[in-house]
Nucleic acid binder design. Sequence first.
DNA 1: CTCATTCTACGAAATGATTCGTAGTGACCT
DNA 2: AGGTCACTACGAATCATTTCGTAGAATGAG
Lengths: 141, 141
Amino acid sequence: MSQATPPKPTDAELEILHVLWQHGPATVRAINDSLSQRRQAEVGYTTTLKILQLMLEKALVRRDAADRSHVYRAAVREQETQGLLLDKFVAATFGGSAMKLVMQALGSRSTSADELAQIRRLLNDIEIQNSTSNSDDDDRA
Amino acid sequence: MSQATPPKPTDAELEILHVLWQHGPATVRAINDSLSQRRQAEVGYTTTLKILQLMLEKALVRRDAADRSHVYRAAVREQETQGLLLDKFVAATFGGSAMKLVMQALGSRSTSADELAQIRRLLNDIEIQNSTSNSDDDDRA
DNA sequence: CTCATTCTACGAAATGATTCGTAGTGACCT
DNA sequence: AGGTCACTACGAATCATTTCGTAGAATGAG
């Protein structure tokens, strides 16, 4: 059981993870280029390299050092990482209430009909899940 | 328009804002006590004081210095502040997609029937808003 | 008046994140 | 072989945040 959960990525680390999640394994050079595009300004090559090295220590990424230019890949899944960050954020900002967060996200933002329908579909799925896993509780309000 | 938007509060500042939002105006002493309760450990009195002084500079709080022990009050509204933080968070973590956030928040979390109903109600309200305020090709922004 | 208590103000240490410069190494081209 | 280029490793400067210690002023009790 030496598999400690990788720690919460910082902002810069998260940005690199986004690149890796989107593009798949990549060299420092490629990651740095993506990063420079994504922001408005050039990012120093060694800055990106350094962060990747720190991420390697934290086990947020793995690397293949077979070639001279190492290839990095994400070692954490997108959904899990986002869930982890979401938990922290909800705790700090909304006192732990995911409901408040959802209300705020939907309420103070323009949401298209498509998106609303998508959420409804999700709600239905969740309700089905809830009722099938919990047979004595069939409420038809 | 000299009303610059107060900056994004840090974690410690946000925690103090929570206290102020919940309890209303309070002295440093009272705030410090609430903080110490909220966490597991004692918080140094001067630590709380210092943060409040910084928050004052940033215009996150106001203070009444009439008495010897100053009374601080929140200068930013809860919903607005949460909305600001939410925007930043969604941008950094979900690439700007509030939808992904909502899906994640609802999907990977146990949500009660009550809460689901609450969200459905909110969805209905939003759809009504959308259809009444915005009929087809009538763009009155 | 004097002492103890409580307050504010401020400096500064400790920590974490981000950035970049420099050094060293290997590869490739001529 | 010699020179140039791209790469990794690493130290260190910078910046923001959080924390606390100390000093000095006001207050109230005896």
